[in-house]
Nucleic acid binder design. Structure first.
Lengths: 217, 217
DNA sequence: CGACAATGTGTTTCCGAGACACAATTAGAT
DNA sequence: ATCTAATTGTGTCTCGGAAACACATTGTCG
């Protein structure tokens, strides 16, 4: 039985949710794009496999990683039986990526995906659903932003992933109420009126989580 | 690489959430209780494996089955590397079970669990969490009840799984509002005042789901 | 026939979600 | 220097769902 780990690596780039894909160098599906992944080694846990693959591609740094689902249809790989444990990862949009050893990794907007190898389109769709859902009751979203960000950037992130417009005042009211943002003393100067920078306070959020208070959106 | 599917089979019996466990007949952990499960055969999907195991244990009939999580710590089985894809299933409390070929399967209340083999306690805990969460925004709960049930039974189910008391009037109001229950013409006579029987209307619920209306508890 | 146990039924209060508009600040153009 | 365009930033009202809350009714059992 062949066991692999495939990873859906999300990031926010150019105001779009993008996924890191690799081009297949060999048959089957030679030349097609596919999710990065690799074999689970002996003595290596699933999560460790995922972390290893992840590091090869995007290096170390703030990363969110979560197991997604296991895919085991008998015919999903034409070469033979392969079961994939899929993970998904979130990395900040300002992170430089190594783009893989051979530089074959490419960011693709999830709205303009090329045809994918195997059942990877299915895996990716599943990951997007999960991300959307999770965004509504957790703070995973912050994993996609740089350490410091403006409220408008945060709102755009939510709007992009949820696929709908949010009201600015309501959005800010809720964020304020949650008390998980720390206003910084710096401002972002980008074209027009400068915007205040904020940082996420993970500690505060942990307390909310313990009390069972979730994320309302 | 050895790949298995293990199943957490929940049911509601004697007003308690119970799990179907099997006693191990051989080493390691000989004599201990463990989650039922089995090898994934060649050419068999993960879900099909789970269904096969499930049917061996509890026969055919209304069943809810969902993939839970994959466990792949290198040392979780002392014999060698074994990765388990865990599923969980819900079956009605009035279902007769075959209790396995050899009759070695036993129902155990999740509040009084014996020591379990391997990392099965962890898997079970994970399943309980998932069940609790899912109960709050879906209708999985109905999978644990017989076809016909009283509102009090339904409420007790929710209270048991959520581990907290619910207000009777609010509970009934919400259920009524959702419109997913059909009152039947029969009554349950059990000791005291008879209670009206109801049935779940899956069709109605599908419509709610399509509209994105979820379960408020 | 009386005690007990469970069913069944509405109103009020409170809080969070969503709808909604305008003044202030800055860069860049003229 | 002045104007324009783009973006930030801020409060109130309304509505709907959630939670708190008590008592009359019905049947069984002793």
């Amino acid at each position: 039985m062949n066991l692999r780990v495939d990873i859906v690596i999300f990031s926010l780039r150019d105001s779009a949710v993008q996924v890191l894909l690799t081009r297949r160098a060999s048959q089957p599906f030679k030349g097609r794009m596919s999710l990065p992944g690799g074999r689970v080694s002996e003595g290596e846990s699933l999560e460790r496999t995922a972390l290893r693959e992840l590091e090869e591609l995007v290096g170390a740094g703030k990363t969110y990683l979560e197991q997604l689902y296991s895919f085991g249809e008998p015919r999903r790989d034409p070469r033979g039986r392969v079961v994939s444990v899929a993970y998904y990862a979130l990395i900040p949009g300002d992170r430089r990526v190594l783009a893989g050893r051979d530089g074959s990794a490419v960011w693709c907007s999830v709205d303009k995906l090329p045809p994918l190898a195997f059942d990877h389109a299915k895996i990716l769709a599943y990951a997007r659903d999960r991300l959307r859902n999770k965004l509504e009751y957790t703070t995973v979203g912050f994993q996609l932003l740089p350490r410091r960000f403006t409220l408008s950037e945060l709102q755009r992130l939510y709007e992009t992933i949820l696929g709908k417009k949010l009201d600015k005042r309501n959005f800010r009211k809720k964020m304020g109420l949650l008390g998980i943002l720390r206003p910084l003393r710096d401002w972002r100067h980008t074209g027009r009126k400068p915007a205040r920078l904020y940082a996420f306070i993970p500690k505060r959020f942990e307390k909310l989580k313990d009390k069972g208070i979730l994320f309302p959106f």
